[in-house]
Design a protein around this nucleic acid. Structure first.
Lengths: 128, 128
DNA sequence: TGTTGCCTTGACGTGAGCGTCAAGGTTTAG
DNA sequence: CTAAACCTTGACGCTCACGTCAAGGCAACA
């Protein structure tokens, strides 16, 4: 399949896929006219990257997972380097949770004095 | 006091202070040679901004607090706009906590299969 | 033939909060 | 007189994961 179809099937954009390629996360065959040609395995790679991003991992963090899949493993997180990324991320998340708990208590304490107002709906969210 | 001393007393840099001024968060008197001259009240403002940043608020979020102090209130969070920022931030933090809990459980589940490795120390932390 | 819809590379823009020069003026100590 | 240590404005750099043009080639359909 070509880049447009891959993007559509993965729910992303051609720009993102070309960016992954520029970062060495994705490779493509080329047809005679220079178009990129992708396989189902490439779709698998893109989905892996997306799921890693969903838990807050960077594209740099995704490298070992991609390498693991390329090495023939059935899942990207069955290699030591991938698991090391998981552990580092877990430590980051734990630290973040602690910080946010502190922030939350601070905000509650500051709001505790009075509070007669309308509640605005939040739009964008922070974090990992 | 001049900008260097204010930076030192606030534990920040001259660049940051000039940036705050460019964002309209800080104003300075000028001496005859063009140097910025700050008062203790300005130091108070900078400290307010820093404490807000410490809980993950942006400089944009800091505006109402600064305005509140400038309006003569004894604390920056005693004005309605400031309290609205607190409430919005609290909602963001709550949402973030939920997300991170989910991420944490995902990571734990993924790591639960095997785990015979050395633990790397994390260096930088994410979040608000 | 023309139009539409793919595809290519390349390059600049985005946001947040500054860091880091560059090029120069001012003040003070030696 | 000069060097050090301040100060000024202006402008570009940085991170991250792309978005958004620009300028053009390729393929299919009317």
């Amino acid at each position: 399949m070509r880049i447009g179809e891959l993007a559509k099937r993965a729910g992303t954009t051609t720009r993102a896929l070309r960016f992954y390629e520029s970062q060495g996360l994705l490779e493509a065959q080329r047809t005679s006219n220079g178009y990129r040609e992708y396989s189902e395995h490439d779709l698998r790679l893109v989905r892996e990257i997306q799921s890693l991003q969903a838990v807050g991992l960077s594209l740099e963090d995704a490298r070992p997972f991609v390498a693991c899949l390329r090495a023939g493993h059935e899942s990207g997180d069955s290699c030591p380097d991938s698991r090391a990324v998981y552990r580092r991320k877990l430590a980051e998340v734990d630290a973040c949770l602690e910080r946010l708990q502190g922030v939350r208590e601070f905000l509650l304490a500051r709001l505790a004095f009075q509070d007669p107002c309308l509640v605005p709906e939040p739009k964008e969210f922070l974090c990992s």
